[in-house]
């Protein structure tokens, strides 16, 4: 009788066990991990070029950054003389390297440089490759009849000649703490056949720094041909922000000690004087005890 009871529970458990096991097997089949390596090229103010590598492991829907992975970056071909640098990924799976001065000549020669990333330990295979067209970006400002406008021109190097780059999408606006505040009503702008994007600056009354300056930026992000380009220009188009000292002469908790609220001073000092007055009184009592003791000869004790 007892044996029969146990069997019944096993039968109840079997379907759950079956579902759990089959789910696990199918989940393992789905979750085949793939290592991703991505190279990004950046130019800031047409002068500073650098590369950022992103290394991650894609497993199902999850992507996890791979840290402490070492890579070599090369320019055009993976030979030692073209080495840009050796980098290691951080905890976000990112590694960064600037173009070294030693590759200045090789960089100047090529209109369409190719960047190559090779993982250390896997020198035979190329982990990532990125070909870009050498490009530059210009930002100009113009004020006509009180209307401010911005003109951004993008050029690309073709056969050693700078030619306009058309249909390039970019963000143009004011650099703020959280990102770029668009100059006009559009989120992004695209260059025309002359490689130029022109927009009216509609953001009036923006606070600037103490002199009324803020930074205009034009940013091309993850363009297939040119990579990431950024140009900045400081303009005096903002409103000068002055510290509001209107309350300074008031007595507040945070002003200087000469302007401390009187009630606070009275309270604090009366407590202080009360307690220290008591302490001084007690010290005088000790002096009194001493005088009493000195007055009584020792043999009288």
């Amino acid at each position: 009788m007892k044996k029969l009871k146990i069997n019944k529970y096993i039968f109840l458990l079997l379907p759950f066990l079956f579902i759990a096991l089959t789910n696990r097997v199918s989940a393992q089949e789905k979750e085949e991990a793939v290592e991703l390596v991505k190279l990004n090229y950046f130019t800031v103010n047409n002068g500073v070029q650098y590369l950022i590598l992103e290394n991650s492991l894609k497993k199902g829907r999850n992507t996890e950054p791979l840290k402490n992975k070492v890579f070599h970056f090369y320019l055009n071909s993976n030979t030692p003389e073209n080495l840009i640098g050796k980098v290691s990924t951080d905890k976000n799976g990112r590694a960064k390297s600037f173009l070294p001065p030693s590759l200045k000549a090789a960089w100047a020669e090529s209109s369409n440089p190719t960047f190559i990333a090779v993982a250390v330990g896997k020198e035979d295979e190329i982990a990532a490759e990125l070909a870009v067209s050498k490009s530059k970006i210009q930002l100009d400002t113009l004020t006509t009849d009180g209307i401010r406008s911005i003109s951004v021109k993008v050029m690309q190097l073709t056969d050693s000649v700078w030619v306009p780059a058309a249909d390039v999408e970019m963000k143009v606006g004011v650099q703020r703490l959280g990102g770029i505040l668009s100059a006009g009503d559009e989120e992004t702008y695209t260059t025309d056949s002359s490689g130029t994007a022109t927009m009216e600056f509609t953001k009036d009354s923006l606070p600037g720094d103490q002199k009324g300056n803020f930074v205009l930026v034009a940013k091309i992000q993850e363009n297939d041909l040119y990579g990431n380009l950024l140009i900045e220009k400081t303009v005096p188009w903002g409103i000068a922000v002055k510290t509001d000292n209107s309350f300074f002469e008031q007595r507040t908790l945070w002003t200087t000690r000469f302007r401390t609220p009187i009630w606070l001073l009275i309270m604090a000092y009366s407590i202080f004087i009360g307690v220290w007055g008591t302490i001084i009184y007690l010290i005088t009592q000790i002096v009194k005890i001493k005088k009493l003791g000195v007055a009584v000869p020792e043999e009288e004790i």
């Binding site: 009592q285 001493k290 003791g293 009584v296 020792e298 004790i301």
Partner: peptide
Amino acid sequence: SFWRGTAEQFKISERA
């Protein structure tokens, strides 16, 4: 050394 243990000294000390 000044403590003689007189009643007066004890009184002041206790009060203090």
